[in-house]
Design a protein around this nucleic acid. Structure first.
Lengths: 223, 223
DNA sequence: CATTAAAATGAGTTATCACTCACTTATTTT
DNA sequence: AAAATAAGTGAGTGATAACTCATTTTAATG
């Protein structure tokens, strides 16, 4: 069960780009840190310059606007988050038949959690955008959601055929799984007190497995 | 099972305050709407004045700063959210022994969901604050979390004694429940497409009940 | 109706922020 | 090492935002 080793998507991050000068890298890092700490609007370009140890003009050397700077930070994430969240299933998860639900859940979420952990700050910035920019929200969601529903749907349907998973509508299954995942991520991102990462992660898989295990009491109760 | 009728906490909202002029009420309403739509920082006081149909000076008549205006909006929520989230259990839930898990889950979450639905905008503004204001986050959490853990803990322990609930650590039980709740609320707040409220809510209770039902496979798997 | 107090106004003030540009410093190229 | 190109600088600019205040409008009171 060593299968889903962590991909190297996120090792190819800011520090990877070759044609970038040290000061520019410092600017990117400072921007990311500040955006995650205080939010995009609460961060001024002079804040960024100060944190990065450069002149304010330098901030504008490569990126013409503050928004472009944010987008440059999010670009690599946006490019990878779609495959990570969705497309991967076709090659990996879909072809393989999982012997148990727990194996499936573990396989599916281990690398996603790892990805999220390695990109907590970036995710915070993305969330800020999604929460208050309706246009971008739809743009991002329309990009991710259908693929995800489709790909995950295939796996779920296969598990349903094998009677390994509860017979609920796929979107509801997805919502309950994502809720658990995001609840876990929220504790990471907000640095809530009393978070023991390892235990939480084991628990995450346990809960997800339990949700998905078929049983007799699974009809949805109308009110 | 008609028990938890919706409290009138949230009927005593903005429109309740007697010593307030129509224009001031319009300002509060416009502020709330805009903060929820665009975020606090992206909303200017002239935006507010325009939306409310008043002069910009009028915005500053009662509240000296923009932040004070936001706080005035959040005050009634903050005053009620604590009892709603936590203290209520002592009178209501704790004394009563629930015949089944589903009865418990239904009782606990029906009024909370109703509260959340009636205050979606306010919650959005609170979330924005909590997400990017570390100080306030700790302030709010230190106010809510301990009460909640304590009160919910009592109920959970009682259910544990009756073997009606899974034997997991209380904080982990809480996290999984809150994850489901917030996942549901996220769909409300972000107006995600394809959300059928009634079905979702019935599903929410089903999933929570399933998570909590004791079973043989409930030991938490180490990694 | 006259007087007084409160509410509302909007032009104006101050501060900050995103962004520019003429210029200096560092790095390549020949 | 000279020339050329790129990177970096920081004072400066225009725009916008929060906030003020002298004045006007509305409401309350006797």
């Amino acid at each position: 069960m060593e299968r889903p080793r962590i991909r190297d998507y996120f090792q190819q991050d800011l520090s990877q780009n070759e044609t970038i000068t040290p000061k520019q890298r410092a600017i990117l890092q400072a921007s990311l840190d500040l955006f995650a700490e205080k939010g995009f609007d609460q961060t001024s370009t002079s804040d960024i310059a100060q944190r990065a140890g450069v002149a304010e003009g330098t901030v504008y050397r490569r990126y013409k606007t503050k928004a472009a700077l944010r987008d440059a930070i999010l670009a690599p994430i946006a490019a990878h988050i779609v495959p990570i969240l969705a497309s991967d299933f076709s090659e990996d998860a879909l072809r393989q038949r999982y012997p148990s639900l727990q194996a499936f859940v573990t396989a599916i979420f281990t690398d996603r959690v790892a990805f999220a952990k390695a990109n907590v700050k970036e995710l915070k910035v993305i969330f800020e955008m999604v929460a208050f920019d309706a246009e971008r929200r739809e743009q991002i969601l329309s990009q991710i959601a259908p693929k995800m529903v489709k790909q995950m749907g295939s796996v779920i349907n296969q598990l349903k055929a094998d009677h390994l998973i509860v017979d609920w509508p796929n979107d509801l299954i997805l919502q309950s799984l994502l809720s658990q995942l995001f609840g876990y991520l929220a504790r990471l991102m907000l640095e809530l007190p009393g978070t023991e990462i390892e235990r939480e992660q084991a628990y995450l898989i346990t809960v997800m497995t339990k949700i998905l295990t078929p049983g007799e009491h699974d009809q949805i109760t109308g009110q």
